[in-house]
């Protein structure tokens, strides 16, 4: 079992110029990798004898926009774990919010296929070289990327009303109780 600083050192020896930032004194230590090198770094971590990161626990997209503490960007976060040595590390890739694109790690861990499809579906992150980059949770012809912070819900989908907010606004204007749904509350404020 290796601690995060030791893992970072091994990575720095090999990929000195591809590691842009690291944070070790947090709950889950993380390393920021330049986006074009992610596949290389991941496959190194998986195949290194002393590291053997055989599990991709989670792959998430995060959209930072309008946060008071963070600059705007899109992040792809990889939570890695080694069942052999029981150590873990978090890798991050930081991308611009316009047309984010990052190489796929599908060839390293097969499960990345579905996780990346989800990140594409929710954030519009393009995974270069992905074998089957389709939407997974939303319908294929859905417009927009729902988990983006500036996402605006469409009012209809194939002629069916999606957002009942208008109807709630109408109800509120007529003085009826509309509940405390945060989406509705925001719209009423706006």
């Amino acid at each position: 079992m290796k601690q995060a600083p030791e893992i970072l050192r091994i990575l720095q020896d090999k990929f000195a110029d591809k590691i842009t930032k690291s944070e070790m004194a947090v709950v889950d230590p993380f390393i920021v990798v330049s986006s074009h090198a992610i596949t290389e770094v991941c496959s190194f971590l998986k195949n290194h004898e002393g590291l053997a990161f055989d599990t991709l626990m989670c792959l998430s997209g995060v959209d930072y926009k309008g946060s008071k503490n963070e600059p705007d960007r899109i992040e792809v976060v990889y939570h890695l774990f080694s069942m052999k040595f029981r150590h873990k590390i978090v890798l991050k890739v930081q991308l611009a919010r316009e047309n984010p694109s990052v190489p796929t790690v599908e060839s390293v861990w097969a499960i990345a296929n579905w996780h990346e499809r989800e990140a594409y579906d929710m954030f519009g992150i393009h995974f270069e070289g992905h074998s089957d980059l389709r939407r997974i949770l939303c319908p294929d012809d859905w417009i927009g990327y729902p988990l983006r912070k500036d996402y605006v819900q469409p009012e209809t989908y194939r002629g069916m009303p999606v957002a009942p907010a208008k109807q709630f606004v109408q109800m509120a204007m007529e003085g009826q109780e509309v509940g405390t749904d945060p989406f509705v509350a925001d719209r009423l404020k706006g």
Binding site: S60, D63, N69
Partner: peptide, 13 residues
């Protein structure tokens, strides 16, 4: 968390 009252992002595996 970005320090606000709501989680900034929750991802479920």
């Amino acid at each position: 968390s970005d320090g606000g009252p709501n989680p900034y992002r929750v991802k479920v595996k």
